[in-house]
Design a protein around this nucleic acid. Structure first.
Length: 292
DNA sequence: CTAACTACCTGAACGC
DNA sequence: TGCGTTCAGGTAGTTA
C-alpha cells in the first residue's frame, strides 16, 4: 500500500487509499477479524460473515457497507447492507495486504476469491497503526450517532454540496479562529492541518481570523477545492517517479507552499513564513500576505 | 449549544 | 553513548 512520507493522511491520501482498496475489497466477504484490544475499536466481530459491497469515503473516513453473506439458514442472502465498517486512519494508520509487523493492530480475514488473481487464495487486510489514533468501528448501516465528527461532517469539498455562500455563512456563524474551525470538519469535510495551512495561504486568509468576509470566504472556498484536487491528482499519478530524499518525495516538498516551510520566504512576497501554535496545532503562514 | 482544554499514543528529535 | 524530555497531531471526552 501507499506510503505517506510521514504525512498525516488527510482527504487526498484517504481518497488515494480508497481507490487502491476498492477493486481489492469490493464483493469480498470478511470471514473473521482479529484485533488488539483498543478503546478506539468497536463491534469489529460484527464484520465477520458479511460482504463488503462498496468502498466509500466521506472526508477522512472510509465507509464500507456490509451485506449479510448467504449462510446456512439464509441461502439467498440479502442485498442491502445492515452494517457499515467505518475506518479512520488517525495519525499513522495504513493498510497492507501482506507482511504484517508488530504495528498491525487489526486483521480482516477475507474469503477466498475464485475470480481473484491468485485463483481463490485466501487473503487478509492488515490495519497498521503505530500511534493507535486510528479508529475502526462497525455500526448499523448509516447510523453515525456514535461517531460525532462523522455525524456532523461538513460537505465534501469537491462535490456540488460544497457551496461558497453556505461556506461563508458557516464561517460567519462561528466565533472560533478560522483555522481551528476548519479542523473541526464541520464547515467542510477532510481538511486537516497541512491543507488548512495551504488553503489559507493561497486565499490570503489569516489563520487567526474570527471574521471572514464574503470575498475572502469565496477565495478560501476556491483554495480548498484547488489544493485538495491538486493533491489527489498528485497522489494518483507521478508518485513513484520522484527521487526519495530523506523519506519524502521531491514532489511533496515542492507542492507545499506553507506547511513545513517556516523560515523560508513566502512564495508571493518573500517575507519569511512564521510558525505559531493555534488551537494547539503548529500553524505556518505569511504575516504580510495573510493580514488580519 | 458552543468553545476551550486535555487525554490519548509512540517514535523521532533534541539536550546534556 | 546513553538517558531523559519534548514534540507532533486528529479526534473524543470533559468542563465552563
Amino acid at each position: 500500500m501507499t506510503r505517506h512520507h510521514g504525512r498525516v493522511p488527510e482527504l487526498p491520501e484517504v481518497e488515494s487509499i480508497r481507490r487502491q482498496l476498492a477493486p481489492l475489497l469490493t464483493g469480498r466477504t470478511i470471514v473473521g477479524v482479529k484485533a488488539t484490544p483498543q478503546r478506539r475499536f468497536s463491534r469489529l466481530d460484527e464484520a465477520a460473515g458479511r460482504r463488503i459491497s462498496a468502498v466509500n469515503r466521506r472526508g477522512k473516513y472510509l465507509l464500507l457497507p456490509l451485506v449479510p453473506a448467504p449462510g446456512a439458514g439464509d441461502p439467498a442472502g440479502r442485498s442491502s447492507p445492515d452494517r457499515e465498517l467505518v475506518m479512520h486512519l488517525g495519525m499513522t494508520g495504513s493498510f497492507r495486504l501482506a507482511d504484517p509487523d508488530p504495528y498491525v493492530r487489526a486483521t480482516f480475514h477475507l474469503l477466498a476469491d475464485p475470480a481473484g488473481p491468485h485463483g481463490g487464495e485466501g487473503a487478509a487486510l492488515h490495519f497498521r497503526d503505530v500511534r493507535r489514533f486510528g479508529r475502526l468501528s462497525v455500526v448499523d448501516a448509516g447510523d453515525y450517532s456514535t461517531i460525532a465528527t462523522l455525524a456532523q461532517l461538513g460537505p465534501e469539498p469537491l462535490s456540488e454540496e460544497f457551496r461558497p455562500d453556505a461556506f461563508h455563512a458557516a464561517l460567519a456563524g462561528s466565533r472560533m479562529p478560522v483555522k481551528p474551525y476548519l479542523l473541526t470538519q464541520r464547515p467542510v469535510a477532510g481538511v486537516g492541518n497541512i491543507y488548512a495551512d495551504e488553503a489559507l495561504w493561497r486565499a490570503r486568509v489569516n489563520p487567526h481570523a474570527r471574521r471572514v468576509g464574503r470575498e475572502r470566504a469565496r477565495a478560501l472556498w476556491e483554495a480548498i477545492r484547488a489544493v485538495l484536487a491538486e493533491a489527489i491528482e498528485r497522489e494518483g499519478t507521478t508518485f513513484r517517479d520522484y527521487a526519495m530524499v530523506n523519506g519524502e518525495s521531491g514532489r511533496f516538498a515542492t507542492f507545499l507552499t506553507a506547511y513545513g516551510q517556516a523560515g523560508r520566504p513566502c512564495a508571493r512576497c518573500g517575507e519569511p513564513l512564521v510558525k505559531t501554535v493555534l488551537g494547539g496545532r503548529g500553524t505556518t503562514y505569511c504575516r504580510v500576505c495573510q493580514r488580519r
